[in-house]
Nucleic acid binder design. Structure first.
Length: 297
DNA sequence: ACCAGTCAAGGAAGC
DNA sequence: GCTTCCTTGACTGGT
């Protein structure tokens, strides 16, 4: 099955996410007025998420939940808690509605590249931990399992030291986190730097038992001898959730993502998040390509 | 109604 | 030891 990533281009005209910057929050006074405006945007974002999950259920897709549902909430200087938001009861009601509907949609999250659990900068580690716990909190509210069925996928994004040292720092920090994070956390190969598939399997899976998310485009840009099937084996009894994308046809940088696909993932028994900019339209096109291929073969 | 600039983050890479 | 780039899309403010 295929996952839609964060945004539905088909629903965007009527259901779009809202955000607020830290600067804007402070320009509004950083008080009740600012919090009221922020709270309304959080509620909007959870409602939009519900609508997109319905849309995915209708189409037989999975869904990667956006990491931008609660702007400012994890900012280190934000003085309020989530329950201080005037709309928080309504937000909880919306989450309950999502849980109660029991959509057959595999949910996942992908915290940003600024989460660096193995950093030597302790402030960065603390922010990373807060962000990961926030994602786990959100996934619990969405009714997600605490397992690799509903993974939290991140990059290592650190090359400070020997690979085994980085992996051990990462694992030591991970061990201090809640069950909601530890039970879901997986790591993905990167399109540059030391963290290709081979090193991830060697230092994160073999050494610490952390499953590996295989990204085909990153593997093309930053190859190694270990491949997609080796990554699939790191997921144990869980169905792997991998990434599929293609290079932009008109850009010299191989790493930039295309809008639409020209091909499709060939491996069976694996779910794929489709990281193509046309979003829903790209998934429909991939499904057409798969259907044509199966008729011809 | 539209458009260009803004915003936020950690680290890598290039002077 | 600086600056720039990477990445992203909604927001903001000016026209």
């Amino acid at each position: 099955m295929f996952s839609l990533c964060c945004i539905s281009n088909e629903l965007k005209p009527t259901h779009s996410f809202q955000t607020m910057t830290w600067k804007r929050f402070n320009d509004l006074g950083a008080g009740e007025l600012a919090l009221k405006e922020l709270s309304a945007r959080w509620l909007n974002n959870v409602k939009v998420t519900h609508r997109i999950i319905q849309h995915c259920a209708d189409n037989g897709w999975n869904y990667r939940v956006s990491s931008s549902l609660f702007p400012i909430l994890t900012h280190p200087e934000f003085k309020y808690n989530h329950y201080d938001a005037p709309d928080f009861e309504a937000i909880l009601d919306e989450f309950r509605a999502i849980q109660d509907a029991r959509y057959p949609v595999r949910l996942s999250t992908h915290p940003s590249q600024f989460v660096v659990l193995a950093s030597n900068n302790q402030e960065s580690v603390k922010k990373s931990i807060d962000d990961l716990e926030h994602h786990a909190w959100m996934m619990d509210l969405l009714g997600c399992e605490r397992s690799y069925q509903n993974p939290i996928n991140i990059h290592v994004n650190c090359s400070d030291g020997e690979p085994w040292e980085i992996a051990d720092r990462f694992a030591a920090n991970l061990a201090t986190l809640s069950d909601g994070v530890r039970s879901r956390l997986v790591v993905e190969n990167e399109d540059r730097g030391i963290w290709n598939v081979e090193r991830l399997v060697k230092y994160f899976y073999n050494r610490h038992g952390i499953p590996i998310t295989y990204d085909n485009l990153h593997h093309k840009c930053n190859p190694s001898d270990v491949g997609i099937y080796d990554c699939a084996a790191t997921w144990g009894d869980y169905k792997p959730l991998f990434h599929y994308s293609e290079s932009h046809p008109d850009k010299s940088n191989l790493r930039s993502h295309a809008d639409m696909p020209t091909d499709f993932p060939r491996i069976h028994s694996v779910d794929h998040e489709i990281e193509l900019k046309a979003k829903d339209f790209a998934i429909r096109h991939i499904q057409n390509l798969v259907d044509k291929h199966s008729i011809l073969s």
